[in-house]
Each structure stands twice: as structure tokens, then as C-alpha cells.
Design a protein around this nucleic acid. Structure first.
Lengths: 226, 226
DNA sequence: TCTAGAGTGTCACCTCGTTGTAAAGCCCTC
DNA sequence: GAGGGCTTTACAACGAGGTGACACTCTAGA
């Protein structure tokens, strides 16, 4: 059964949500403020996050942004109060998957939860670790090893590698990468992607000039062959 | 610009939506009842359908079900009144992509429209794959295999093959190919098509000199026999 | 059946867009 | 203001596509 993390400070709301989700057979984890929520996202690895916008310590939108910044693609549904219309739009742009306006019925929330989980099921699964051809990646720790030797990857390189591994076997375009790894809306003419692919190759490939993992697909993009 | 079909009977709502979408640069088609909506979905081939649940003649959920029954994957956003909670759940199960509860702000609707269109853009509209006589084509991945062995096709070769498969059994002229695969307006006297057909044969045929798939129709063009 | 001429297969070369990569510039953090 | 990471710029190298040439094949008409 999927596990849901509820990040909410209103106790009566927490109780209602917990009962509802448990009744539906979900595993439930709770956080009372933004900072705790952010911590539990990595500790509990929930399948779904229900995130209130108004929270003590760190508001929901910042939490959302932080989760995504780490490259975590866990589905997020935001809870907003009426009249926070602009917040809603922002929320979706921040990387949330959906939102529900308070007050809402539990069935309404469940419909969105199921829709979001269904969509997420189509996405490549989050992996804990990856191992192939002398390359070992521990996504949890953010560690990459080549033949046991720890590599020093930057954040950007790690997110790039994570995306490639999550889409291994597929050809991915520069636009996809800019969208997923850089959060760019548009696709400006830039060589940034190529640049970082080159850097990544230099670190993970034995012979960067004749790559084994990260191969170029001329005219289209790149493909990670794991 | 994308075209949206609005299926709604409340005239003030129609006016507001039409103005809003036109302001955002969308093309707009209108239907005042369910039957007309269903008809316009195929006649206008919109990129998105906004569908009210309460409609004369045929209600929105039935329209939604009918659209999907025909195999049409056009994104659908349902408009529901408050309190139609069960309808919402049903709506999503019927194959709608999202719904918005009345009353709603236009920005709220637009956020959902953009989200739905973004998701839809990732979906392949055409055939997913093709398989015949030891030849396997995965259009999604852009992979072509012959007897399981992955072939290395260029972009142009892949487009050419895709067109041939899409028109298998028909004789296609060089002009058609130049138009569809090369985006040429005119048809200059060129050997380009023949060249690429030859290259493609060399890759997909067992005996390129006596082709099985890509046969020449002397005086006319080529025919893909799948 | 034979043959000329149109139609087709294919090679080598040239061109141009795409990609690899080093180096310089920018921006944030400490 | 020094350092590291990221982006942009510039140029070299590469690869795919287009063209012309020439050989080969097919077909219509004698």
C-alpha cells in the first residue's frame, strides 16, 4: 500500500486526513511544520505528499521548491485556502502535481490523490540505487562510485545523472533535460546541456571520447544505456 | 496555437470562457449541448475540450465516455458544480483528465489547462509500435530492430520509415515523400529520395537488391508491404 | 524479340548543421 | 574578494544529408 506524508499544522485537519487515508488503506506519516516535512520526505520516502501552503517554520511553497531542488519527483498535492488563486498557479509552477482548495470533501481529495498516483505510476520509478558496469549510484546518499572509487559530482551533475538513469534506454532531448533538470520553461539556444554532459562523461566514463553509458544521438539528444 | 472546444450551455459562462481563451491566444470552438459537443470533437479536432457536466440533450459525463469510447485521447477538463463530489470521481474514472469546480477563477482554469496540455504533449498521438516479418519499430523510443538487433537509423531514415509504415500497402510518390518527410513545397528534380530509400533498404532488408518491404513501383514511386 | 530512352540504384564528394570541449565570464556563497 | 559551480562563447571536429555522375534496369514501341 502506498505511504502518504501529511504536512499540516491544523490538528483537526490532520486527524481527519489520517483517519481517511488509513481507512483507505494508506500508510500515513505526519509532520506539523515545513522543516519536519522536508526532513520526513527523505527519511520516510513517501509515495505522495499532502502539503499545506500555510505552515509554521517554512511555508508549503518553499518546502515544495526544496523537495524538487533535491531532484525528488515524489507526487505533491498542495492544500490552499480560498482566494489564494495566484498561489495556486505558483504552486503548480513550483513543481507541485495538483492542489485542492479548502474547504474540500475527502472524496474530492481522494479523486486527486488517485489521479496523481496513477500519473506517477507511469513515470519511471524512483530508485534507491543503481549499479551497472562498474558504476554505482546511491540516490539516497547522493553518492556515485566508479569501480568503488567515490566520484565528486556537483548537484547539477547528480540531477542530470539521475534523470538519465531514470530514463535509461530512451533518447532524451535537450529540451526535456532543460525542463527536468534545469526547470527552464522555454528552451533557449544554449549549449549548457552539452557542456554538462561532457563533464559527466569525463567523470563516469572510462573513455569519454567513446562513451559507453552516455551516448549521443545525433540530431536529437542523448541516451543513457545502462 | 492550440484550439479549445467549449461545451457549455450557460451563455454568460460561454462568453467569459471564449473571451478568456481568445485573449490567451487560443482558437475557440463552441457547442451548446452534449450532442453538438460530441459532433464537434471529431469535426474540429480540438487540442482540448472544456466540458460542463450539466448539459442539455446529453450530459457531460456521457459525452466524455463517448469521446473515449471512440478511442479519442484529446485532453478533457470537466466543469462541475459544488456538491457534485461523486460526479467528480466518476468524471476522472470516465477518462477526463481534470476537472474544475464552479465557481472558479479564470487563472485557476488556465493553470489546469496548461498542465493538461503539457502532459498531453508528452503522449504519442500516433502508433506506438509496429511489427512485421522480423522488423520491429518502437516509434516512442525511435528504435528499430531487425530480428531483435538494434539498427542505427538516422533521423531522416526514421521519418521515412515512419511515413512508409503509416502508408503501408499504398504506392507513394517521390513528391509525397518530399512533401511529408522533407517538408519541401515544390518537387525539384532530385535523387535524394532514391538515395535514402537505398540507405533504408540496406539497413532493414535482408537482401537489399531484392527488397521485401520497400519495393519499387516503376514509373511511380515506392510501396511498403508490411 | 530487340533496342532506345526513361527510370532507378548507388557511389564519392561537398556542404552545412550539430556536437565536443577548452576557456572566459558570471554569480552566489563564505 | 576568493573559490567553486554554472553558463556562455568560440572554434575545432564530426556526421548527416544533398548533389552529380555513371552504371544498371525496366518498359514501350518497332
Amino acid at each position: 500500500m502506498p505511504k502518504v506524508l501529511i504536512v499540516e499544522d491544523d490538528e483537526s485537519m490532520v486527524a481527519a486526513l489520517r483517519d481517511g487515508f488509513e481507512y483507505e488503506g494508506y500508510g500515513v506519516a505526519l509532520a506539523g511544520d515545513g522543516a519536519a516535512g522536508l526532513r520526513l520526505v527523505s527519511e520516510e520516502t513517501p509515495d505522495l505528499v499532502i502539503l499545506d501552503v500555510m505552515l509554521p517554520k517554512m511555508n508549503g511553497m518553499d518546502v515544495c521548491r526544496e523537495i524538487r531542488r533535491g531532484g525528488n519527483a515524489v507526487p505533491i498535492i498542495m492544500l490552499t485556502a480560498r482566494g489564494q488563486e495566484i498561489d495556486k498557479v505558483l504552486g503548480l509552477k513550483l513543481g507541485a502535481d495538483d492542489y485542492v482548495t479548502k474547504p474540500f470533501g475527502f472524496m474530492e481529495l481522494m479523486a486527486r490523490v488517485e489521479a496523481v498516483l496513477r500519473r506517477a505510476a507511469g513515470r519511471p520509478v524512483e530508485m534507491e540505487s543503481y549499479r551497472s558496469g562498474g558504476l554505482t549510484v546511491d540516490f539516497r546518499k547522493g553518492e556515485v562510485r566508479k569501480k568503488g572509487r567515490l566520484l565528486d559530482l556537483t548537484q547539477r551533475e547528480l540531477r542530470l545523472l539521475r534523470y538519465f538513469i531514470g530514463h535509461r534506454g530512451e533518447v532524451v532531448t535537450r529540451e526535456q533535460l532543460l525542463d527536468a533538470v534545469w526547470d527552464y520553461d522555454a528552451a533557449p539556444i544554449t549549449r549548457t546541456v552539452d557542456m554538462h554532459v561532457a563533464k559527466l562523461r569525463k567523470k563516469i566514463e572510462d573513455h569519454p571520447a567513446t562513451p559507453r553509458f552516455l551516448v549521443t544521438v545525433h540530431g536529437t539528444g542523448y541516451k543513457f544505456t545502462g
